[in-house]
Amino acid sequence: MSTEKHHISTYMSHGVVLTILLALTALSVGMAELHFGAFSVAVALLVASVKGTTVLTYFMHLKYESMFTRIMVGGVFVIYVLVIVLLFFDYLFR
């Protein structure tokens, strides 16, 4: 059954990941206070994407999954981005 090797993450590594995530949260809250105007959205979403990727990679263990799983997850996000692009082809060029 479970004869496959599983990667076991250490408690320490989970702690490090959490620290990074909390730092990023602080960063995005701080940035919002500074009022970058038009850029604030981009910055906030960028930080959120970094955080999301971190959660996917370490907490959700993607780093240690098979190549196929990683491609699958990446592909799904690509498809979603393409949907956004096509949708905005309409809204931006009206």
């Binding site: 096509l86 082809f89 309409d90 809204y91 931006l92 060029f93 009206r94």
Partner: peptide, 10 residues
């Protein structure tokens, strides 16, 4: 009433 470019692309 969607945009010209999106009609073209679709």
């Amino acid at each position: 009433g969607i945009s010209y470019w999106s009609k073209w692309f679709f």
